[in-house]
Nucleic acid binder design. Structure first.
Length: 421
DNA sequence: CCTGATGCGTC
DNA sequence: GTCGGAC
DNA sequence: GTCCGACGACGCATCAGG
């Protein structure tokens, strides 16, 4: 497919703001896209090249894009920068400044979606000495063969400012509309995406195998699940009221990093909140999980917190961040010891727990996680009394926590959604 | 070697 | 993480 | 209520250039 088709659709999307209209326009594009190119389109429209958990990065963003525009247009960097400031985004600057040049390059091969994607993939894979220069050359070659409109959206893709009002769920809606004829299948598709968050894979599966293929997607240890998020509320009363004036579970909210822990025979994998693989950062966590999680295969969630080794006190988030390094991991491990507070269980012994009510997940969690100096199920209180929650909150703060997370005991794990508070 | 610029992740 | 806007 | 985008503080990695 020609990239011009994509760019023209983006341009249409830019002009509208209603969600329904956006979805319809996007669906039209999806229908026109050859099946093997659907993943490419899905990723690029999200400003990505691969799902988050594969960690593919361009290493080229706003500043370098400005330099590329300068070299491609033959203008000075100052001139480009001025246009950028005037128009407000780098993509529009590219569109404006490369338009004069486009006359001469109309004879070149029209850009295809594949070429744009493959070039950006190449940019992402370029490393080492001279790589910054090489990345810029790749992008420049693309812009040289692009129409002004194409240049605009290529640059926006690169700088992560596509801003079409299209994020994951809109794409899923558009897919449902394009391949099923209505948004009716959306809940199933959403569920599939949340337990296998690779948008390209979901879009292609839907197009090729239909809803059947989507329904066959299962929770798999080793494939990250989109995390359920919390919502901020200020009073215990408001929380209780929101959850329906019944018994809820209140848990410590610690000032650390959220880990999704996948334990298998082959070993343990750690995913960050954005589903990046961060296994290598926490060798000590791997050991703690191997020793203290009494299940051969499991997906658990825990907050990892830096601690004072002598007192066991929790340390602020910044201290933990020293652990997020590529080199000197062993030293950092000694210098910044951590503890694990487990707060959810999504799978154990090949059984998917995501559709179980929270109370049952917690019970299983408690049966699986051994309480040690460094590991425990996060402290939790069950009550329907706002005053008790307030008191528990004070305990939490006194124990170095940021506050509480309150959960509906009957709530299932709604991956990717804001649910409890 | 060191420093600054840039990019990108966590919260 | 927070915030506000749009639907 | 949900989704989306814009924003900030902080720490680390990478590379360019002296």
């Amino acid at each position: 497919m020609y990239y011009s088709t994509v760019a023209e659709t983006y341009s249409k999307l830019d002009a509208v703001s209603g969600r329904i209209e956006i979805t319809e326009i996007l669906a039209e594009l999806l229908k026109k896209t050859p099946r093997d190119e659907l993943p490419l389109l899905a990723y690029l429209t999200q400003g990505k090249l691969r799902p988050d958990y594969e960690g593919v990065e361009l290493g080229l963003a706003e500043k370098l894009a400005l330099r590329v525009i300068a070299s491609a247009s033959g203008l000075s960097q100052e001139a480009v920068y001025k246009t950028y400031v005037k128009l407000g985004d780098v993509g529009s600057a590219a569109e404006r400044l490369l338009s004069k040049k486009s006359q001469g390059t109309l004879i070149s091969e029209p850009l295809t979606l594949e070429r744009v994607y493959n070039t950006l993939l190449k940019v992402s894979q370029t490393v080492g000495e001279g790589s910054v220069e090489a990345k810029q050359r790749e992008l420049a070659s693309l812009l040289n063969d692009a129409s002004p409109l194409e240049a605009k959206y290529i640059v926006r893709t690169v700088t992560g400012e596509l801003r079409l009002g299209v994020a994951d769920y809109t794409m899923l809606d558009a897919c449902a509309l394009a391949f099923l004829g209505s948004k009716g299948g959306r809940p199933l598709i959403e569920r599939a995406y949340n337990i296998h968050p690779d948008l390209g894979f979901i879009v292609e599966t839907l197009a090729v195998e239909g809803l059947e293929g989507i329904e066959a997607i299962r929770v798999e240890v080793g494939v990250p699940i989109r995390p359920m998020l919390a919502e901020r509320l200020n009073s215990a009363k408001a929380i209780i009221a929101k959850l329906g004036n019944k018994v809820v579970a209140a848990e410590y909210k610690l000032d650390g990093e959220r880990l999704q822990i996948h334990k298998r025979k082959e070993g343990v994998t750690l995913f960050s909140r954005r589903l990046e693989v961060i296994t290598h950062n926490y060798p000590d966590v791997l050991e703690l999980v191997a020793k203290n999680v009494a299940s051969g295969e499991a997906i658990l969630e825990a907050e990892v917190v830096a601690i004072n080794e002598d007192t066991g006190e929790y340390l602020p988030f910044q201290e933990l961040m020293h652990r997020r390094r590529k080199y000197g991991v062993a030293e950092a491990m000694k210098q910044y010891p951590v503890a694990l507070n487990f707060f959810d269980l999504l799978s154990a012994d090949r059984k998917d727990y995501t559709n179980f009510p929270y109370g049952e997940r917690r019970a299983k969690l408690e049966s699986v996680v051994k309480e040690t100096e460094r590991t425990r199920p996060v402290p939790a209180l069950r009550t329907a009394d706002p005053e008790e929650i307030e008191k528990f909150m004070e305990d939490a703060i006194a124990n170095g926590c940021e506050g509480l997370v309150v959960k509906d005991l009957d709530g299932v794990y709604r991956a990717g959604a804001r649910e409890f508070s």
